[in-house]
Each structure stands twice: as structure tokens, then as C-alpha cells.
Computed example of a mutant assay.
Amino acid sequence: MTKKLFDYQVDEPVEGFFLLKDAEVRIAKNGKKFLAINFQDTSGEISGKFWDASDQDVESFQAGRVIHLKGKRENYQGNPQIKIFQMRLTHDGEPKEVQQFVEHAPMNTGAMEEELNSFVFEITEPNWNRIVRHLLTQYHDAFFSYPAAKKNHHAFAGGLAFHTLSILRLAKAVADEYPHVNRALLYAGAILHDMGKTIEMSGPVATTYTLAGNLVGHIVLIDEQIVKACQQLKIDDQAEAVLVLRHMILAHHGLLEYGSPVRPHVMEAEILHDLDELDASIMMMQTSIAHAEPGTYTERIFAMDGRNFYRPEHDGTKAADPKES
């Protein structure tokens, strides 16, 4: 059976076909070019450095291409890394289909769409419902195929919709527990909060940020689309209901320094921010813990203050040995 990236142990030779998720040209201290690469397959991604890259190497090894790699699995500053011995583009007859190396959401599009529509049905405020349906239709294909981020959490095909569904399930639990929460507002905000990433990012393969993504960002981008939707649907974009919905999106990063133009000033906006943080953090920890052996620490997670996490010997991921009971 063909080994995946994370099947290889530290110091074990690596050989196989992988996708170049990223291949960024940088300049080393000696003034020579090198490529900062992220190799990817369905098990995840691991970085590597291709030193002394020629102009031809830069032209050949571009993000989105499948390559054959020989190297060694290492750890660098607590993070997995591939030491590259040899790398080339695939030949005729070798794997070239990009999709077979792309990690996907654990649910298919049909199942995610069906569950998400059940939440849309519960958005009982008419204008919120109309706006949500309008934008879901407009960005349907990208919403159900894009990742939720280039790196960190839900960085896989379909990750945006899967992240949204996870938040909706959490939102349902909160609304069931606290009857005063406006369920319709929380659901509408959850569905729209990251939809701007369909404009901010390029797609599920070799994901990059678009010009609009870099210069404007997904929060403002989707707020603009909400206003445009109101104009097309003949809804007053200055009505309180619309302003409250826009506030849900504009405030969901929680702090100004994290990109939100405003901090949450509506209870449901604070809840959405908290649930967004919770789901992203759990996904980052889950991904790293899955790649760590029991009794060891994970790699350091940059987006969680560079912390690493210990995976206990008995973490509930396998059945207990009957002899131990």
C-alpha cells in the first residue's frame, strides 16, 4: 500500500508522489534562491526547503503541480519537515490528477447541503432568510468546495461548508440551552460569517489569496455582498434587522486587531465569535493530535500562540486492552 506523508516516521526515507500545495520563492542568507514548499496528500501537509533553486526549478515546481519526491522525514523546532534529496515533475503514466492528493471534508457536498438547508428553514425572520438564500445560491459551488483557510483550521476542500455546519450544530446546542438567544439571527450569522472567503481565496487547490482578499478581506467583502443583496431584493439595508445581521459578520473576529471593524455589541454576535474560535481551535488541535504518537507532544500550533499539546497514552481513540481491566 502506498504510504502517505504522515505514515513516515522521523528519520525514515520518504519516496512518493505528492502535490505542491505551496512553493514560495525566497532568498537565503547567501543570496541564492530557494523554494519554501508545502507538500500535500490526503493525510495532510508537511513543509520542506528546496535549496539553491535555479530559474528552471522555480518555473517547474509551482504550486498545484504533482511531483515525485525522494527525501527524509525530520523534525525542525518541533514541527515535521521533509529534507529534500531529489524532486522532479511526474512523467507520463505516473499520477498527475491533482484531486487525488487533496484532503477533503469528512462529509460529501450533498449531505452538507441537506443539513445546512435544514438550518436555513429555521431562519424565521423573512429578510434574513431571503438574504441568506440569495447569497447561498450566488456562491453555492465555491461555498461547498473551498477550504475555510489557506492553513490552520479546515484547510481542506469543502472545509468552508464543514466549518459552517460545525458552528451551526454548536449554535443549536447553545440556543437549546439558552431560550433567550435569537436562534434565527445566530443561524443566519453563522452561515454568512465566512462566506466572503469564496472571494478572498482562489479555491481548494494550491490555495492563495486573491487581490481582493489581500486588500479588503473576507469580512468586508461579504458585508458588501449583503448590501448588494438587499438592493437586489428591495430590502432596506439601513433597517435594524439588516444592520444587526451585518454586525454579526463584522464583529465575528472579536477584536479590532484580529480584523473585525467592530467588537461584538449584540449577544448573538459574541456567541458567534466564541463558537467560531472554539471550532477553529478544536480542529487545529485534532489535526495535530492525530499526527502525534500517544505519549508525545504535537507540533507547535502557530495560530494557538505556538503551543503544543500532549496526547495521553490512553486518549480514548482505541479500545482498552481487556487484560488491563
Results as ranks from 00 to 15, higher is better:
190 A>K: 02
198 T>M: 01
177 E>R: 12
236 D>H: 09
267 M>D: 11
200 E>R: 07
250 L>E: 14
270 E>S: 13
200 E>A: 04
235 I>A: 07
279 D>M: 02
223 D>G: 08
221 L>K: 10
272 L>M: 06
266 V>K: 09
237 D>N: 14
271 I>R: 04
196 G>C: 03
249 I>H: 07
173 A>L: 11
241 A>M: 11
190 A>E: 02
196 G>P: 03
260 S>G: 15
225 Q>M: 09
198 T>A: 03
200 E>V: 02
228 K>L: 09
255 L>Q: 15
259 G>M: 12
274 D>V: 01
249 I>W: 06
193 H>W: 04
181 V>F: 05
262 V>F: 05
184 A>H: 06
219 I>K: 06
267 M>G: 10
268 E>A: 14
262 V>W: 00
184 A>L: 03
221 L>D: 12
204 P>W: 04
258 Y>N: 15
214 N>G: 13
271 I>P: 02
174 V>W: 07
193 H>D: 05
229 A>I: 05
277 E>V: 09
241 A>T: 15
226 I>L: 05
278 L>C: 03
190 A>R: 01
240 E>P: 02
225 Q>Y: 00
178 Y>A: 02
266 V>C: 00
262 V>K: 02
225 Q>E: 15
190 A>Q: 03
188 A>E: 05
232 Q>S: 09
249 I>F: 06
267 M>E: 14
183 R>C: 00
253 H>G: 08
186 L>D: 08
209 Y>V: 00
255 L>A: 14
202 S>W: 03
239 A>V: 04
179 P>S: 10
213 G>R: 11
215 L>Q: 11
190 A>T: 15
208 T>M: 00
206 A>W: 05
217 G>P: 04
203 G>C: 06
206 A>G: 10
207 T>I: 05
209 Y>D: 05
251 A>V: 13
276 D>E: 08
228 K>I: 04
243 L>M: 15
233 L>N: 09
261 P>D: 08
175 A>T: 13
265 H>D: 12
196 G>W: 01
259 G>Q: 10
245 L>C: 11
263 R>F: 01
266 V>F: 10
199 I>A: 01
174 V>M: 08
227 V>R: 14
268 E>Y: 08
208 T>A: 06
272 L>D: 04
279 D>C: 05
239 A>N: 11
183 R>T: 10
177 E>V: 00
201 M>E: 05
175 A>D: 02
245 L>E: 13
176 D>Y: 03
180 H>V: 08
250 L>C: 05
176 D>N: 14
260 S>Q: 11
223 D>N: 15
218 H>Y: 10
266 V>S: 00
261 P>R: 06
233 L>D: 08
267 M>A: 08
200 E>F: 02
277 E>Q: 13
241 A>C: 04
264 P>V: 10
250 L>F: 09
274 D>Q: 13
233 L>M: 05
276 D>Y: 00
191 I>D: 06
212 A>E: 15
209 Y>H: 12
198 T>C: 11
235 I>R: 04
251 A>K: 12
237 D>K: 11
248 M>V: 11
247 H>R: 12
262 V>Q: 06
179 P>I: 04
273 H>S: 08
202 S>E: 09
223 D>K: 10
232 Q>Y: 01
190 A>W: 01
262 V>M: 03
